[in-house]
Structures are given as structure tokens and as C-alpha cells.
Amino acid sequence: MTEIAMPLVLVLLAVAFAWGLQRLGPEAGATWPHRAPFLGGGVPQTHAWQRWHARYYPMTLLFIAFEMEMMFMYPWAVVYIETGTKALAEMGMFLGILSVGILYGWREGVFRWQ
């Protein structure tokens, strides 16, 4: 159980360190012109936070379906040698099936900016 204790300690350490580092500098004069977002002298009309049109959203959907296969691949890798050719064939089939999805997505222009 200590195997996750050490990573957790490291996380706390790193976050505390970076926090402390950012407290080092002097206080900034926070005037409104100073806080305005940088646009090379121009000004935005609205807040930058918005219903952001992520142009690759179909790709992300394809991605989460495809990424699921990693869950199966790690245990597969562990028993690969002892299972032999059968494992190769099964995973080949599995990946083959999913590759059809990628090809289909490609044909439908999923990887382009929508």
C-alpha cells in the first residue's frame, strides 16, 4: 500500500514547492489596464471564456471509444508470451475492428477542423 503513498507525497511536495515559488515575487499593481488580456494593443469586446467551438469534437468522440481498448491491451501484454499466437491473433482482430472505425472517421473528415 506504500506504493501509492510515495507518489502522493511527491505530489504534495511539488504542489507546495510551486505554490511557494509563486509567492516569492513582489505584489503586482493590479490596475484594470494592466489586467486586460494581451491582444497587441487591441481590446476584446467580451470575456474570452465562452461556449468554445472546439473544432475537433468528432475526433474526441472517436478517441474516447478507441482509448477504451487500452484497458484491454495492458493485461493482454502481460500474458502475451504465455498465450502465444492465439493472443496475437485475438489482439490483431480487436485492433483490426477498431481500425475500421478510424478509417471510417477519416473518410467522414473527422480529423479535419470542422
Binding site: V15, W19, P26
Partner: peptide, 28 residues
């Protein structure tokens, strides 16, 4: 390190402060 941190208009303060720490933590 001797320069100030520039604030922005209505930022997500906590996440802005923590992001470098998380990045370092993941590296560690």
C-alpha cells in the same frame, strides 16, 4: 523570480496558481 505575477481580469485564481504545481507533480 524577482518580478511580480501579473493578474488578469476575472481569472480562475486557484487553478492558475496550482497548474505549474500539478505539472511538476506529474513530472515527479
Amino acid at each position: 523570480l524577482l518580478r511580480p505575477v501579473a493578474p488578469t481580469e476575472a481569472p480562475d485564481r486557484l487553478n492558475r496558481l496550482l497548474a505549474p504545481g500539478w505539472y511538476l507533480a506529474l513530472a515527479l
